[in-house]
Write a protein that binds this DNA or RNA. Structure first.
Length: 235
DNA sequence: GACCAGGCACATC
DNA sequence: GATGTGCATGGT
């Protein structure tokens, strides 16, 4: 096992299976992925509940025909609500134009092509698109988020400031491309990341277990090494 | 009251 | 290509 696999094993043993994504339908995953951009999940849940409690608006048709004003009002609790309304609208327009608003039709598109198409929608960046590919369509695409970078740069596995693609290649080159593995791994990183300050202030169990080091940083942003050769996996 | 949260597009250098 | 900024609410 390589270090990336070892760390997965450690996280899984500590936190157990996460059963992600926390949503009742593939469509809800997509809307949730947009709503969670730069936002605490607790706030996203409030917005999602607002949508669900209003004649089940987490339905492609009903959301498509909802006014922007009403959508803004309902998703307000999760912040950035005007720009997120635009982004959801951009996605819905794409979704109905290309796939008649049907997830099953969209699911027939090959991964690479679907990724390109989704990335062409204004407001959907790499993390959002990869979350959709992995958690809506079960494609083995590794999602890179801030937690991933913070945790692995803290562990001195790689430099926080590497590009999205470099981070993604690191994981995709060192893991078997099995969507269940990618699903669980990303979920575990988020769970660990949310607990991270508590763990890393005093001790980080991953760090102690694999690197025989006490974690003396984190909390406010993991200091980075000046010399990249000090990373375990420099890319 | 300060800081942060599962980003992204756009402006500027 | 790197860096800075606006977008906004709610929890700690």
């Amino acid at each position: 096992m390589n270090i990336i696999e070892e760390i997965f094993k450690a996280l899984f043993e500590k936190y157990g299976p996460q059963y992600w994504w926390p949503a009742d339908s593939p469509f809800e995953v997509i809307i949730g992925a947009i709503l969670t951009q730069g936002t605490n999940w607790n706030n996203v849940e409030k917005a999602i509940n607002n949508l669900k409690n209003n004649i089940d608006l987490l339905n492609p048709e009903r959301l498509y025909y909802l006014s922007d004003e009403k959508l803004e009002e309902l998703i307000k609790p999760c912040g950035f609500y005007k720009i997120k309304t635009k982004r959801i609208r951009n996605f819905l327009n794409f979704f109905f134009k290309n796939f008649d608003g049907e997830i099953n039709k969209m699911a027939k598109t090959p991964t690479y092509l679907l990724r390109e198409k989704l990335l062409s929608i204004s407001g959907l960046g790499k993390e959002t698109v990869d979350s959709i590919l992995l958690y809506t369509f079960n494609r083995p695409v590794f999602v890179i988020d801030k937690y991933t970078r913070k945790i692995f740069s803290c562990l001195r596995v790689a430099d926080f400031s590497l590009s999205y693609d470099e981070w993604q290649n690191l994981f995709q080159n060192l893991l078997f491309p099995i969507y269940q593995l990618f699903n669980e791994y990303h979920a575990l990183l988020v769970v660990h990341g949310k607990n991270r300050c508590r763990f890393c202030k005093g001790t980080c169990f991953i760090k102690e277990r694999f690197f025989s080091e006490k974690a003396q940083f984190c909390h406010k942003g993991c200091p980075l090494l000046e010399n990249k050769s000090n990373y375990y996996l420099a890319t």
